[in-house]
Design a protein around this nucleic acid. Structure first.
Lengths: 145, 145
DNA sequence: AATTAAATTGTAATCATTACATTTTTAATT
DNA sequence: AATTAAAAATGTAATGATTACAATTTAATT
C-alpha cells in the first residue's frame, strides 16, 4: 500500500525533502500507473494545488529520476513518460491508441546485467511497439466491412 | 559488402525510389555505423551534395524507417539516432562521453517476440545506459587524484 | 515537347523542455 | 519571536529539434 507516510519515508530515505509538491507528484505516479507525461501530471494535480507550476513538475521529475525514485520511459516520440514502478518490467506502446502498458515475463530480470564487454551498466529499458488487443479487433472489423 | 548497387537494389525491393539523396543517406548510415543524428548526417553529406536540405534528411529517414530499411534508436534525450543495421542487437549509451555502441549477446533474439499477452508486437528496442570502458578509467583516475 | 506526378528544397511554425530570475517557503541562528 | 540564510517553487523567456507547408526542381508519362 502506498500511504502518504510510506511515500514520505521513501523520499526521506533517498535524501529528498518531502515537500507538498514532491509528495503529490510521487503519489500521482504510484496511484495512476499510466506512465503519464508532464502535462498529464500537471493537469491531474493542478486543481488540488492551484499554485503548482509546470516547471516544478519538470524539476521534481528530474530530481526523482536522478535519485532513482522513479523511471523515465522514452517510448513516445513526442513526450517523455514517467513511471513510479521501479521493479524490472518492459513497456509496450500501442501504435494505434497510444496506450502504454507494462509487460512482465519470465527471464526479464536476466537483462538487468551490470557488466557486459567491459561496459558498466546501470540503466536498462526494454521497449515494444505494436497493436494492443482492442485495436487489433477494431482493425479487423474495419477491414471486414 | 554495401556496394551502391546492393543499396540500390535493397531500396527498390522495398518500393523506395533510389534517388541520389536517398542513396547517399542510406549509404552514410551503413558506412558510418555510429548511430548518427539528423545533423550529423546532414553535415556529413552537405559537402558532396551542396543542395541537400535538412528537410530532405528528415523526410528520407522517416521514409526509410517506415519501410523498415533502417531503425530509429531513442536512447538519447535530445536527438533521435538512426541505425542502418536492422539485425537484432541492443544499444548502450555512455552517460559520460555520449557514445552509442552496439551490444550483442546470447539470447537477444528471444526478445524479438511477436505475440505476448494478446499484444501484437512488431518493434523491439533494448537500451542500456552506463559508462564505457574508457570513461570508467578516466573517472577512476580523477577520483584518485 | 507537353503534362503530370514525385521528390527536393527553404522558410516558418510548433511545442516540449530548459534557463534563469524572482518570489515564496522552510530551516537555522540569535 | 524576529532575523538571516538556504532551499524550493514559480513565471517568463529562450532554446532547439522536429514538422508543416508552399514553392521549386527533377523525373516519368503521354
Amino acid at each position: 500500500m502506498n500511504t502518504k507516510v510510506a511515500i514520505k519515508d521513501r523520499l526521506k530515505m533517498l535524501g529528498i525533502k518531502p515537500s507538498l509538491q514532491r509528495m503529490a507528484i510521487m503519489e500521482c505516479l504510484l496511484e495512476h500507473p499510466v506512465h503519464p507525461t508532464v502535462d498529464m501530471i500537471f493537469n491531474q494535480l493542478s486543481p488540488t494545488i492551484p499554485t503548482l507550476s509546470k516547471t516544478t513538475v519538470y524539476n521534481t521529475l528530474k530530481l526523482l529520476s536522478e535519485e532513482r525514485a522513479i523511471h523515465t520511459v522514452n517510448i513516445d516520440e513526442k513526450n517523455v513518460r514517467y513511471d513510479g514502478d521501479i521493479l524490472p518490467h518492459a513497456h509496450f506502446k500501442c501504435k494505434s491508441c497510444g496506450k502504454i502498458m507494462d509487460v512482465h515475463f519470465q527471464g526479464l530480470e536476466a537483462l538487468k546485467i551490470k557488466q557486459l564487454h567491459g561496459l558498466q551498466i546501470d540503466e536498462c529499458q526494454l521497449l515494444y511497439k505494436g497493436y494492443c488487443q482492442t485495436c487489433q479487433h477494431e482493425i479487423k472489423q474495419t477491414t471486414n466491412n
